[in-house]
Amino acid sequence: MSPYGKTAQTAIAAVSRLAEVYDPARRVKLNSADIAENRHLPQPVVAKVLTILSQAGVVNGSPGPGGGYWLARPPEGVTLYDVVALFERLDDNVSCPYGPQYCGTGPHCPLHFDMLKVREQMVTFLKTSTFGRFVGYTPPAAPPAPPSKGAKRSLNVLPKS
């Protein structure tokens, strides 16, 4: 159901697996074969994705026998955006369904502003969703905002019929 390519999907799957085994008390390492087997993914692609994630500082790794990968930060400190942005273009450009020469060179197509809104919603979702969600982490609830001065309270009373 992801709107992104297979490489970004593989990266999300790999990081979500590392989030599942994350333990702040001890470093749990998984190699690319472990992750590929658990997520039913091709091992060479998982290995390539983990290398890119390691270079970006999302995961750490150690080579050789007994080596493997682990999250560089707790799962709630890694957003989906941190991962997807490494594999997908998330810039402000939205592909026009009328073709690349339509929007921006004349009037906007009929879908232009709706597509911009969907893109903004997706980026907001990616930036606010962490891998903590994969392991049941729930962020603390924000305290309710105090009422503004001069605001009247509404009792939401329904009129009698």
Rank of each mutant, 00 (worst) to 15 (best):
V28F: 02
Y4D: 04
R89C: 00
C96E: 12
H112R: 14
P63C: 07
H112L: 11
G68C: 07
A141M: 13
P110G: 08
F134N: 12
V84W: 00
D23T: 09
L155Q: 15
V157L: 13
L80H: 15
E88D: 07
R27G: 05
A145F: 08
P143L: 07
P97E: 10
L71F: 01
Q9D: 08
V135N: 11
T130N: 10
F113S: 15
F87M: 03
G132S: 10
S32I: 00
T128C: 08
L50K: 04
K160V: 12
L90S: 03
G57T: 08
P147H: 04
R39S: 05
G106C: 02
K117P: 04
S161N: 09
Y22E: 05
P100A: 01
P65G: 07
P42K: 12
W70D: 06
F125M: 14
C96V: 13
R26C: 03
V59S: 06
P3E: 05
P143W: 15
V15A: 06
E20P: 02
F113Q: 15
Y98K: 05
Y4K: 05
Y4R: 11
D91S: 00
S54G: 14
D34W: 09
G104M: 10
L41R: 09
G64D: 09
N93V: 13
L71T: 09
L126T: 11
D91F: 00
V58S: 10
A8L: 08
P97N: 08
K29M: 13
P44T: 11
M115R: 14
L86P: 06
V78N: 01
K149G: 03
V45C: 08
G61P: 00
P159D: 13
A47Q: 13
D34G: 08
P147Y: 06
S95I: 08
P147V: 10
K6R: 06
Q121I: 11
W70S: 00
P44L: 06
G61I: 00
R39D: 04
D23N: 05
A141K: 15
E76Y: 10
I35M: 06
P159E: 14
Q121T: 12
F113H: 15
A145G: 11
A72P: 06
N38Y: 08
T105A: 14
R27V: 14
